[in-house]
């Protein structure tokens, strides 16, 4: 029973995704294809079909179809095939904010410049509206973290984009502040945003420290090496953050040549194994 997380082959995953009776099978198959970054010619068309399987939002019922669609959106981001962009842009305006969140992250992974106007439009009302608490759930009106992270990843550093992001650095939730600083640091390279993230590494809540670790890793901010080492968090997360410093860092080597900066980060990683 594939839905229980047992290993399956690529052919089985495609078959599981093609059928529509067993949604837990589809859910698992969509995840599997993304995780394996499947290059099979049928993978992207089937994932797009699963994404179109989404339903109008019906609070309290029928979330199963959208769970499949969410995993399909995530997988399309991981496979990073440009054919997915136009459908993901449509999903960015879906009524289901969980789907909007998955689509935003996928568009960020796809570096889809076409998504920037839509992403900024969803955030333009600022922390008090887009970033307001919902009355019916602990979530915000918009999936702010995902939208902000996507803008940072896509990399369009126009003044109007920066102006939409900046107010979120004062949001009441530290995780949103962290996402906004991450995006601004990626877009501008200004140290002030890194300093905010370094502060968050010392936040009393572990969840916030974890987010700041991931954000500094995503930016690849090399001066964060020592603060990351000292952060009170699991070694597993510090290793992911340090991997980010090596792979995303400015001045990072491509291919197999390593500079002395790289080697310092690698030695810090060795000590965390």
């Amino acid at each position: 029973m594939a839905g229980n997380g047992e290993p399956i082959s690529e052919a089985e995953a495609l078959e599981q995704l093609r059928q529509t009776d067993d949604q837990s099978g589809q859910y698992y198959a969509a995840w599997w294809l993304g995780r394996m970054r499947s290059r099979h010619p049928e993978a992207v068309p089937l994932l797009l079909a699963a994404l179109r399987q989404r339903q109008p939002r019906d609070v309290g019922a029928g979330v199963e179809h959208n769970a499949v669609a969410r995993n399909a959106a995530r997988a399309l981001g991981k496979i990073a095939d440009g054919r997915a962009v136009s459908e993901l842009l449509v999903v960015l305006d879906d009524a289901d904010d969980g789907l909007r969140e998955a689509a935003a992250r996928a568009l960020g992974e796809l570096r889809a410049v076409e998504a920037v106007p839509l992403l900024t439009r969803r955030l333009a009302s600022g922390p008090d509206v887009a970033g307001a608490n919902r009355s019916d759930s602990p979530r915000l009106q918009e999936p702010c973290e995902a939208l902000l992270e996507a803008l940072g990843a896509i990399g369009v550093a126009e003044p109007d984009v920066l102006a939409v992001i900046e107010p979120f650095t004062g949001h009441g939730r530290p995780l949103v502040r962290s996402a906004a600083c991450r995006a601004l640091l990626q877009l501008t390279g200004e140290t002030a945003w890194a300093d905010e993230l370094l502060q968050l590494l010392q936040h009393p809540q572990l969840q916030v420290r974890r987010a700041a670790l991931m954000d500094l890793g995503a930016v690849g901010w090399r001066p964060a090496l020592e603060p990351i080492r000292r952060t009170l968090a699991e070694n597993s997360l510090k290793l992911i953050a340090l991997r980010g410093l090596v792979e995303n860092g400015s001045g990072s080597a491509s291919g197999s040549e390593t500079g002395s900066d790289d080697e310092a980060v690698l030695m810090a990683m060795d000590a965390l194994l």
């Binding site: 090596v246 792979e247 491509s254 197999s256 040549e257 390593t258 790289d262 690698l266 990683m269």
Partner: peptide
């Protein structure tokens, strides 16, 4: 994974 290749290179 790039970081694995870099570590193997070192």
């Amino acid at each position: 994974t790039l970081v694995v290749r870099l570590r193997a290179g070192v």
